[in-house]
Design a protein around this nucleic acid. Structure first.
Lengths: 249, 249
DNA sequence: CGTCAGATTGATATTCATCAAGATCGGTGG
DNA sequence: CCACCGATCTTGATGAATATCAATCTGACG
């Protein structure tokens, strides 16, 4: 079994990781979060987790695996608007936006935890600091999306791929799912093309270029980054937007 | 003087418009918002309003004019990550993210209102519903950014421009700054190229195509849209992401 | 009248998409 | 064990979309 799928069925520890990487949580706050009512559900690779135009009554917290927010054009073209990893509160904004403007799908086998919106609203009112941290979580999603806009608009395909790898490595690292310059990133080149807004063929060529110059290796969903600084410099990567500093928020 | 620059110096009515277009506000809530402590500042076209890597202690609410969030690459290339219009709480997320990962600049002459973070935090705790609406405002920013990702990744340049015009028209309309199929949109083709991620020359050609097919006119910052439905269909535009429906949030 | 920012046009170069064909590899049924 | 199959990766050839470079044109304004 994929290591991302291990663990107790209803654990929220990746979320605690995610939050504690950005601010301190009191013991009481941790207890409140662990006490959230929830249900767990598993998805197979490729399955849809949340449908476009639906009106979820719960928010989905990813506990294991990878998921993507998918935009779909009328002619069938697809674009991934965000990648999500364990600890990400995938559609927290559904709480506020009511109608999904996109869908969410499992990229690998996933474990998802669903928390009723009502419970989140109540928690945010009872513990405003946690409320702000949830808000922060959606704000970080926004910051990441801005960075993606910069990649799509102004970076070359090679820089874009390099940038994405830097980002995913640091995000996975922040929830203890990557380290030692390696990460598991089980995404096919075709899926990658929908993340980068390229054709699958071009992803292949661009990936080869990063390999040829020794910036990465990428074999069967395992990526290694011999020299992170060098890759980051090549991609013009600035980690500010990931907000990985612990501070009072 | 630009009509967007008229009005009482400290008014927050565009913000009320923005919020009331999405949910009802009680009289009491309106009063609380109007009572927010604030200062007003004017900016000339091109001036920087918030610097990258700064740590604002106030959030900026745009009361008049147009502003853009700007990403800048090391080699000088620029990409606009978001356009802001009156009523937008431009860097509300600065409250949570602490360090700006981008800058904000005036695209036209602007009136900006600054509200101390502390006052916003306090308001959100005292009036959780308003807190959620502020949260919603950042979530809508995120939804718009997702739509932009779809445009940059998978739409052709012509569709992208058409999509942007649809979006801006509806957003301006929602704060009473556009109607009758016309809007003032004082953006040069060169600035537009940083919004669309294109070269300025290509923006010119693409704009001509939209004019030639009769989908828009665009003369000196004035855009008219003879048939919105037709433009929207051409751009594959779906307004869901703008969250323009009034509902309890 | 001269200047300058912005818009427009044409010629050419790059980047990336598309189409078509193998190559590789893990899994699966016989 | 083996032959086959589908998914994925890889490669080459060609074409479309867009960038770049270099003029020219236009209108506002001092």
């Amino acid at each position: 079994m994929d290591s991302a799928l291990k663990g107790s069925p209803k654990e929220v520890s990746p979320l605690l990781h995610f939050l504690q990487r950005r601010d301190r949580l009191s013991a009481e706050e941790q207890t409140l979060i662990e006490a959230l009512p929830r249900r767990m559900q598993r998805y197979r690779r490729g399955e849809e987790i949340i449908a476009q135009h639906s009106r979820p009554q719960e928010s989905c917290l990813l506990a294991g695996g990878f998921a993507a927010r998918l935009l779909q054009l009328a002619d069938g073209r697809r674009q991934v608007a965000a990648m999500h990893i364990p600890g990400d509160f995938v559609d927290l904004h559904g709480l506020l936006l009511k109608v999904m403007d996109h869908s969410v799908a499992a990229v690998s086998d996933c474990r998802a935890i669903f928390v009723p919106h009502a419970a989140l609203v109540e928690l945010a009112e009872k513990a405003p600091h946690i409320g702000r941290l949830l808000w922060m979580s959606t704000a970080i999603d926004g910051a990441i999306q801005r960075a993606w806009i910069g990649c799509l608009g102004r970076r070359s395909a090679v820089m874009h791929l390099a940038h994405l790898i830097c980002e995913m490595y640091l995000r996975l690292n922040a929830v203890d799912l990557a380290g030692d310059n390696r990460m598991s990133f089980p995404v096919t080149q075709s899926e990658m093309s929908d993340i980068l807004g390229l054709s699958a063929v071009h992803v292949n060529r661009v990936a080869q270029e990063l390999r040829r110059t020794g910036l990465i290796t990428w074999v069967k969903g395992e990526v290694t980054i011999p020299d992170f600084q060098r890759l980051a410099a090549f991609a013009d990567f600035d980690a500010t937007y990931l907000n990985l500093r612990q501070e009072p928020r």
